[in-house]
Design a protein around this nucleic acid. Structure first.
Lengths: 356, 356
DNA sequence: CTGAAAGCGCTTACAG
DNA sequence: CTGAAAGCGCTTACAG
């Protein structure tokens, strides 16, 4: 005697039990299909009785919609990404889409991931992986599947993307530090050719230079804790160590803080100010109290999902670059200037009067 | 003129181009199927030419294997889970399985998730969600789909599970604290009826009681940062505050440390020792240097995937409870005893000689 | 080794 | 509103 509960239950079984055609069963589970309340009820009852659920796989085969979106992500160490993933899963779920997760491996094996994505005929994909974004997005676009780049962009403007205004926010950080009367500046860079790193570095450095600051040091953290620690050590052991450091993201900024305090005995912000980018959970922990440019997860994910849905629905894919508004969240890791910091909803923000 | 690249490419198209039957195409993409090298080559060439990739959806329809495993997870704030997710995605990918992510929502809406899972005919599911594990696992088991509970278990032993030895590890924590000559103990509990919380509390409290310790305080942190902060405040503002606190996981332990230091000006470990469970990334950061019972992510995920595969392959599901070995990682958040701490591979572990 | 054909569980024109 | 039937893109006995 088999222990199997019932084996797979199909619409046929339900039809039989309800005494209707298989089409009728299908229709009662297809929103908007034409079906009388009476037969609908019969079907529903039968379905409940034998525990029937439409087979989504079979459905996608003829609708040519899988209702699956692929998410390519890596760098889970950076709390920003898990936060994004959680929000993405929830929002997608509300729209009855599902999330197939691909972890970009360090080898940057684009082809393999692309292959998998294509095989599952995902309806869309969001690329939030550090490295392999560009190639992958081109391939997907070429294959006609909607893509949105998350927290990254590419020059050609061929793909849609969602970002905060990296240049503007980094300029603001420079101004904040300048207003705090810092003298020796350093930038801890992420992976050198990542779009957000480029934008942040440019916004920061060019603003400082415009104000006549010289000798801005740039070291490579590459979004990696170990490399960042080494970069920080290099900075702090130099003859004229910086008194103001902007790290391209929070994860690196926290590492810089730890090195400063525990390896060099520096006080923050008395001896050195540190600012990050992301405003990720740990940045708010009192042990760090990191001043950081926020990337509003919910708003960014909202925009991403909206973009994706629009593209999935409309045939022709019109690329769109969305920029979500962030703010410079002021905490205690950087000396505060004497002006420009305002209180808002329990947070301190840097919002100097725009003068020009 | 349409801009579409080619539209969906099917095995039919390839067959035509290669001058073979559609079956032949199918066979060249089915490992182990009987096909001559010659026609295989023809097919591969044609496939490459028009960019063909087998449709995984269609395939699963007749193999009755989706090669998808569902992962139900929540509580992404706790870094342990993102770490697990990343490892899971990678290991599954190596076996050519895919990961469909479900985020258990706060409302504990089991039915909805179960519904989605069933609709996609996932081949297996891993439950790593705090709340809704039990009901969900029962439903899935009843439906005949392999389940493994991750970092949780249930009494009936009907479902497979992967855990560390929560009772033993918590007993060890008690002994460590005792050896450090602490006097007033407290336990910060997770969600009261979660299996791991129960086990940790029991291991900790019963060991202390056996040694004659009285007045062990238990407060509820519920795996929630806010509640944990309140619980810690309660602890520290009492007349005889504890000098030794074990929090059911690292995430809560870090919060306790922050409250102790920044709200009560306590020194750690001079005034109070704090120990956690998980040995999650942030615990190693110098700002915390949390002493914690480790949950080896890779080993646990290995075991999970192995269990899942075994169950997917064999028809009858033999539930199995796997216990992965952890260790008490000694850092600086708790006073060290004068014996029992050994150095191993750059880490300090608590390994007193077993006497009894 | 190979092809014709049935079938996986659905959706969706098409007639009625 | 309803059912019979074709078809989605594959896999897999079955004959040869």
């Amino acid at each position: 005697m088999k222990r199997k509960t019932f084996g797979p239950v199909t619409s046929q079984h339900v039809a039989q039990l309800a005494g209707v055609s298989q089409s009728a069963v299908s229709r009662t589970f297809t929103p908007g299909a034409s079906i009388s309340p009476a037969t609908r009820e019969k079907v529903l009852k039968a379905a409940r009785e034998i525990g029937y659920r439409p087979n989504a796989i079979a459905r996608s085969l003829n609708t040519a919609r899988s209702r699956i979106v692929g998410v390519v992500m890596s760098y889970f160490d950076n709390q920003f990404y898990p936060q994004v993933l959680e929000a993405l899963a929830q929002q997608l779920d509300e729209l009855n889409y599902h999330l197939l997760l691909f972890v970009g491996d360090r080898d940057g094996n684009v082809d393999r991931i692309f292959d998998q994505i294509m095989q599952y005929r995902v309806d869309g994909i969001v690329l939030a992986s550090v490295s392999l974004s560009l190639e992958l997005s081109e391939e997907c676009l070429a294959a006609g599947i909607p893509v949105v780049l998350f927290n990254r962009s590419e020059e050609t403007g061929i793909a849609s993307s969602v970002n905060t205004d990296n240049v503007a926010a980094s300029r603001q950080i420079a101004e904040f530090l300048l207003a705090g009367e810092h003298k020796r500046f350093a930038y801890v860079a992420g992976v050198a050719d990542s779009s957000v790193n480029l934008a942040r570095q440019q916004g920061f450095v060019s603003t400082l230079e415009a104000k006549g600051v010289q000798d801005i040091r740039v070291v490579q953290g590459d979004y990696d804790a170990q490399k960042t620690a080494r970069a920080a050590q290099e900075l702090f052991s130099s003859s004229a160590p910086p008194d103001a450091i902007f790290a391209a993201n929070d994860h690196m900024a926290l590492t810089v803080m730890d090195v400063a305090r525990y390896e060099f005995g520096l006080r923050i912000p008395e001896d050195v100010s540190v600012i990050g980018y992301d405003d990720t959970g740990a940045s708010g922990w009192p042990s760090y109290a990191l001043t950081s440019a926020s990337q509003p997860v919910t708003a960014m994910v909202n925009a991403t999902v909206a973009l994706l849905m629009k593209q999935i629905e409309s045939e022709n894919i019109e690329p769109e670059q969305v920029v979500v508004a962030g703010a410079l969240i002021v905490r205690h890791s950087a000396r505060r200037p004497h002006f420009g910091v305002v209180e808002k909803e329990g947070l301190s923000l840097f919002q100097p009067q725009e003068v020009e």
